[in-house]
């Protein structure tokens, strides 16, 4: 018998503004432990806004509704506290940070999260080993981690590096905003396999969940969703199984979400 599932991320009637403009308009969504949900929707629907609101980006203000994450009030936490609580945000446009190496960036991030959990910082050697292992998982040259964060990376390299970061930080929940855009066919498979390796439940491992924001159904061939949602004009207008993604691909958003 399957065990009763606990809600990991529970979004209820979320309203949010960006720079004062209302964008999210009563969005509700629940992702249970062990589930992968996909969010699809046209450009400008509010997909990235949802991701940023969950991450706590300044300028993205919640005006009504609630978000609970692993039983906690997510919106009461600062962005870095949300990360430490196990939330990972994969950026649609990963940010370049000149002068800060990927190694330094990730070591600071991991050790800050460990500190929150009362764990000792990882030694330089142990961190290097972990970083190499996760880079290899995404078929990324570990030497690239010595370069300034995302500086000079191609679009595809930036997305792979997002997943290397996810591998190193090992979050309980990932919100991945168009991680598949900018990837060629081979890279798409590598990233898809990477997401499965990092975020799928392992025997005896902790509960995990994924919210996969995407435009196309192709990533969903590798990372099979349990539920597919259609986001339009700031709210979920339709939810269904994996077949919904195919329907969207064939008929377009307007026909399906009307």
């Amino acid at each position: 018998m399957p065990a009763a599932k606990d809600p990991m991320l529970q979004i209820d009637n979320l309203h949010a503004t960006v720079g004062g403009t209302p964008i999210l308009d009563g969005l509700s969504l629940t992702v249970n432990a062990g589930e992968v949900h996909a969010i699809m929707g046209p450009n400008g629907a509010g997909k990235s806004t949802l991701a940023y609101v969950l991450g706590g980006r300044p300028g993205y203000d919640v005006t009504a509704g609630s978000v609970r994450f692993a039983g906690e009030d997510l919106l009461a936490l600062d962005p870095h506290e949300r990360a430490a609580a196990g939330l990972f945000l994969g950026f649609q446009y990963p940010v370049e940070i000149p002068g800060v190496s990927g190694m330094q960036f990730l070591r600071e991030a991991l050790n800050a999260q460990r500190k929150t959990h009362g764990q000792e910082p990882l030694s330089g050697g142990d961190f290097l080993k972990l970083a190499r292992e996760k880079a290899a998982l995404l078929r990324m040259d570990a030497e690239m981690l010595k370069r300034p964060v995302n500086v000079g990376f191609s679009g595809g390299e930036k997305k792979r590096f997002e997943m290397v970061q996810m591998g190193i930080l090992d979050p309980g929940f990932a919100v991945l905003d168009e991680t598949d855009s900018g990837l060629d066919i081979d890279a798409l498979r590598i990233v898809g396999d990477g997401i499965n390796a990092i975020m799928r439940q392992k025997a005896g491992g902790p509960d995990k969940g994924v919210l996969l924001i995407t435009h196309y159904q192709r990533l969903l061939d590798y990372v099979r969703p349990d539920v597919v949602h259609v986001l339009s004009k700031g709210r979920i207008v339709k939810s269904g199984g994996p077949e919904l993604a195919h329907l969207l691909e064939e008929q377009g958003y307007e026909a399906v979400a009307a």
Binding site: L89, V95, P98, F105, L106, A109, V149, L169
Partner: peptide, 28 residues
Amino acid sequence: DETARFYMAARGIPPETARKLLVRAFIA
């Protein structure tokens, strides 16, 4: 750079540490 600061926060780096990393990169 506010965007860089949020990116760092989204990885779990507290604001003071983020600022120190960015200032270090700037004066380096």
